[in-house]
Design a protein around this nucleic acid. Structure first.
Lengths: 356, 356
DNA sequence: ATGAAAGCGCTAACAC
DNA sequence: GTGTTAGCGCTTTCAT
């Protein structure tokens, strides 16, 4: 099969004739013998149209291969039918699931999704917001920590609905997705205590990340609730990547009394921790138990399969969309708080504390 | 810090006053005492403008907080400054790196990236193309296999530049990113043969995926080149997910003469393979060597770190952008082929064949 | 139920 | 170097 047949390439002549005649609503109207307004009504199903008229319009649309120009539509109606999603880094396995779910629902509702990465650089946040403003998005989901109040104000001033993940509080045009980390963390500590662990360490994420801090604080709190003392030497900070977990664990292993269990601020960190433990010739969970956070897809396939605190990412995607959709369709000026709970998924990286 | 202070929420009165006065080019022009055309010239730097005028315009823009409306701009100029990227599934770890890289470069060039997932469903491809058409993208990168020639024609007919990944041939407005799999695969087989392996199996991807077939064929070819016989029983098909690799390996282990080495069509498959080997009480690479494909980020952190054929995803992102940018800026009607080579990354999942 | 026409915010061709 | 103005393709009153 040659190239032309394979892709059904059109001839240059055919293309020229078509590009001059870029099909628009006027041509459809002419062909159907109606006004452009009627075509618009058929396309958008705004007000009822006579049955015969509708059929004529539809067949004209089909015959001409008409696709409405979204930009013109936006200009006319004021709604872009586009939501923005600002995240740190799409290659962080936490985000793709959220983005995918959000996109699917958005498309089902006739909305588009515009994704912008800050790449963890606060100054890129400004560019992201600018893009959202220029594209006139109907709402923005912000899932980074790098959020200058000034930039938020830029969006809020224009009445653009915003939904935050985890950070931020509900306000005018501002919703928030609250993730109940404490629930999962308490279950995790309970699980470890039940296995006899007393020396429990925590490897946190970068201090600049609000959600990482929340996880860290929830850990402290849960530990206190259980009456366990929380030694500062059992608190290490990572970077939410494998490398950070690894070096944090290396330090923990140098302690005179290394922990018997470690909870990580995310699964990548846990992978690094396990790696360091293995590198030291120790076993998971034989010598040290490890609990991750997030439950990214790969976690259940690790050696050993990772016990982890699941953060339901699909639900986050749904809530983010729901928040923006509610705010932008109804004229609900005040945001809503969406609650998402976490749960402990017990697999094989945790076990009874080693007998001395 | 309370909500208002934290986000610098604006008052309702302030917002009302602003939303009525949705800042547009005319207001900037009025404030700067120039025409809208001049403002446009300053914003787009199309033709030189007097130094004082420019300064006045810029300060008006700043004072008013003006952000040009991209949709109006698109309507006026005919260019949307937006590229589409159609992929199967953003949560497949192969894609985020490509998307991220593409997006970064695109933004640097004043372009936006619109991502659409087909979710592996051919019928969703139609919706994706429609979205691209309606948003009037300046070009589309198609990185799925589900590509109905009819849909391609829809894009091509309108002179919209397309770039394919791996599949497809160069033609009018059509570029292709050719990935030289054979190079990496040959190196992989060479590596295994050097370690004494003769019984080498291959676990392919889904037969519906063009790139998976290309990988599979390249394997066959390389094997023949080396004069090794290629037993049909050593050819299993997976699904490019962990599960598929696992069950494929389970079958391979049932063979009277199981292979001593396995090459997988992607890294996830390799993870499944390793899992099955471990589940059978065997060791990697002690009993069986495993080579993956892609080199996703996690591969080097697996136990054991995975030897794999790296497909440079950042380069793919760059090439995809370059192809579209070249095609849409110059009026180069004919596409280009971009070549990307693969390389073997030797880590610890491969070792000498087990002595009998 | 349908048509006519006035925008939406910007660009670009043309004047000066 | 700068202003004027006619579109770009659609939505949306306002008539009819």
């Amino acid at each position: 099969m040659d190239s032309a047949a394979r892709f059904a390439i059109v001839t240059e002549a055919e293309r020229r004739s078509l590009s001059h005649t870029h099909v628009n609503i006027r041509e459809v109207a002419k062909k159907a013998g109606v006004s452009t307004a009627t075509v618009s009504r058929v396309v958008n199903a705004t007000v009822p149209v006579g049955a015969v008229t509708e059929r004529r319009v539809r067949s004209a649309i089909k015959a001409l291969g008409y696709y409405p120009n979204t930009h013109a539509r936006t200009l006319g109606s004021g709604k872009s039918h586009m939501y923005g999603l600002i995240i740190s880094d799409i290659s962080n396995p936490f985000f793709p699931d959220i983005a995918k779910c959000f996109e699917r629902i958005a498309v089902e509702h006739g909305q588009e999704l515009l994704i912008a990465n800050t790449d963890y650089q606060p100054q890129r946040m400004q560019l992201c917001v600018r893009r959202m403003l220029e594209r006139k998005v109907d709402g923005v989901a912000i899932m980074t920590s790098e959020m200058d109040p000034h930039l938020i104000r830029l969006l809020n001033k224009r009445g653009i609905p915003i939904v935050f993940l985890d950070t931020g509080r509900v306000g005018p045009y501002i919703s928030n997705i609250f993730i109940d980390y404490s629930n999962g963390i308490e279950k995790a500590i309970e699980h470890l205590v039940g296995l006899g662990h007393k020396k429990i360490a925590f490897v946190s994420g970068p201090a600049t990340l609000a959600s990482a801090n929340i996880r860290s604080e929830a850990f402290e709190l849960s530990l206190k609730k259980r009456g366990l003392k929380s030694a500062a030497s059992y608190r290490k900070s990572g970077d939410h990547r494998i490398e950070g977990g690894q070096s944090a664990m290396e330090e923990l292993l140098k302690l005179r009394q290394p922990p018997t269990a470690v909870i990580a601020s995310n699964d990548l960190t846990a992978i690094g921790i396990i790696r360091a433990i293995h590198a030291a010739g120790l076993k998971v969970p034989g010598d040290i138990s490890v609990i991750g956070f997030d439950d990214i897809e790969i976690s259940k396939f690790l050696q050993p399969p990772l016990t982890t605190i699941r953060v339901p990412r699909a639900e986050i995607g749904v809530s983010a969309f729901t928040a923006l959709y509610a705010a932008s369709s109804k004229r609900a000026a005040h945001g809503t708080e969406y609650r998402i709970s976490t749960e402990l998924v017990v697999r094989e990286s945790t076990g009874p504390v080693k007998a001395k």
